[in-house]
């Protein structure tokens, strides 16, 4: 267990180091002066470490100061707005996290139980229905789905708002960045109306992100359940005269869920991509929308920091999930000799 933890910790640290190195080198690859690309302006008064990094002659020393600056929140300023990137990102990032969190929760809560239903009803009507509908869901391009949802639900039926996070009527002070938490913490009048408004803004983006994730979770859970049910040990449990519910809860459930967790880890990068696309379409004020704006405006410091941050999130989440699935899997050292 300790070895697994150390191994994954090492892996995460090294990968992050490579990411930082890549983001640092971006400043030199972008057109223009590398010092300006790194800082975002000719001179910044309140970011001494980053300014020092620019002034060094040796690249390695520059990199050393750059790493220190990153840790101290001195990430340069944006070309477009001239504001410090760190503050911008910290404002936007919780919005993205909130959206992805709700979408993943929704997909998990529905995808995995329905996957179990489908797997246990293998090749029956329910299974066929789930399989064909999830195939359709899986093949939707996410941007098209979002546009169709806006067209039908917001424009035609006018049930839900089509963009933004909250109606302009409500002025919620920024505390945690999570809109629902912020509303709960604030002391405005008409709190329940604000909640209602925030949730009605959330529904469409969450749905469009969770649509594909749901289909993937359903299909992988179902596959894994079908595999487990056909194994020899389930048959032997039946021969021992155990009841169906006993077999399900004691043998099928755990064995089917164990291989699903690493699959979730693989899905994280797809999820982040989808969230960024959906943010742009719904004008959700998150990091994805911001990053795509930055690319349009050739805001090099913002691109450099944004890409590094998104990549870091993906790496950290994927590797931690993989590490977790290794830790809770009692059969993990079954192939230990092959892995060493």
């Amino acid at each position: 267990m300790i070895t697994t933890l150390i191994r994954y910790f090492n892996l995460i640290c090294l990968t992050l180091l490579v990411l930082v190195l890549l983001s640092f080198s971006l400043a030199f690859f972008f057109p223009g002066d590398s010092a300006v690309n790194l800082l975002g302006a000719a001179q910044i008064a309140d970011q001494p470490l980053l300014s020092q990094a620019v002034n060094q002659s040796n690249v390695l020393v520059q990199f050393w100061y750059y790493v220190q600056a990153l840790f101290n929140g001195q990430w340069g300023v944006s070309f477009a707005t001239g504001k410090p990137l760190y503050e911008d990102i910290m404002q936007l990032f919780p919005a993205t996290l909130e959206l992805s969190l709700y979408a993943v929760t929704l997909a998990l809560v529905f995808g995995i139980p329905l996957g179990f239903v489908s797997g246990l009803q293998y090749r029956k009507k329910i299974d066929h229905a789930f399989m064909s509908s999830s195939m359709v869901m899986y093949s939707f391009p996410v941007f098209w789905l979002a546009l169709i949802l806006i067209l039908l639900v917001s424009l035609q039926a006018q049930w839900l708002p089509m963009s933004g996070r909250l109606s302009l009527l409500y002025d919620i002070p920024h505390a945690t960045g999570f809109i629902l938490v912020d509303i709960a913490l604030s002391d405005i009048a008409n709190k329940q109306y604000a909640f209602h408004d925030a949730i009605s803004h959330l529904i469409l983006p969450t749905l469009s992100v969770s649509f594909i994730a749901f289909a993937v979770f359903l299909r992988s859970t179902r596959r894994s359940v079908v595999d487990v049910v056909s194994t020899e040990y389930i048959k032997s449990a039946q021969t021992r005269g155990l009841t169906a519910s006993n077999i399900f809860f004691k043998h099928i459930l755990r064995n089917a869920l164990l291989p699903v967790l690493p699959l979730l880890a693989v899905q994280i990068s797809t999820l982040v991509t989808n969230v960024m696309i959906v943010e742009t379409i719904f004008s959700w004020p998150g990091i994805g929308d911001w990053l795509i704006q930055a690319i349009y405006e050739r805001d090099y410091p913002a691109i450099r920091t944004g890409i590094m941050l998104v990549a870091m999130i993906v790496v950290v989440f994927t590797l931690s999930l993989e590490c977790l699935s290794q830790l809770i899997d009692p059969t993990r050292d079954r192939f230990a000799y092959a892995r060493r």
Binding site: T231, E232, Y233, K235, S236, A237, T239, K250, H251, R254, N255, L258, D329, P330, T331, R334
Partner: peptide
Amino acid sequence: FQDPLASLDPSA
């Protein structure tokens, strides 16, 4: 059963 390793639940 024939094959004990296949007939035993690997995660219990």
